[in-house]
Design a protein around this nucleic acid. Sequence first.
DNA 1: CGCTCGATATTCT
DNA 2: GAATATCGAGCGA
Length: 203
Amino acid sequence: MIECPDDAFYSRTTTAVAKELIGMKLVRTLKIKNNTLRLAGTIVETEAYGHNNDKASHARIGPTSRNAVMFGGVGIAYIYFTYGNHYCVNVSAKSKREIAGAVLIRAIEPIEGVNVMREYRAVDSIFSLGSGPGKLTQALNITSMLNGADMKDPKSELHIEFGTTPKEIISTPRIGITRATERNWRFIDPSSRYLSKMQIKVR
DNA sequence: CGCTCGATATTCT
DNA sequence: GAATATCGAGCGA
């Protein structure tokens, strides 16, 4: 039986993949002694990033040691460290015609292993556990050690499983970037209470 | 509530 | 040197 989206799922445009990842589950398994702990959350917010057609993408300048995953196979974890403080998780995706691409996972709704998440990220409100790209990596104990993990493999320490598609998915401009801000490449479940709190400035 | 700003590694120019 | 796909503390309203 199929538990995880496969190669075909990720072998499409990053925008299509970003949109359909909403409602799926991001799963982190921790091997502690003889036990396997499962931390999981429903993906409620994503952003698509392209290649040199996308001035906001890390891949715009061509392959480097950091962004190499974006140029490789699809369904692979691309994890990078930013602002000297935070990790961000992406999953590589691109259509056959494209050279590079990835989808940033910006927010999750915690559903499994919440108590353990709170150990990695001590916050008052459950809404602050995974409501942001730097927050969810802390709650799930995701670091650059997991860069290159196969998100299509249910045995992988970090992977994505099928979930329930929400009633509605909408697109908005991406957040926290200065280039190509006109593209509506951020996708959210508007009914979620677990979205990243940063808002789009409206003039 | 909203704004400013410091932290601080890695990449870019 | 400057910028960055971020967060949270501190401040003022």
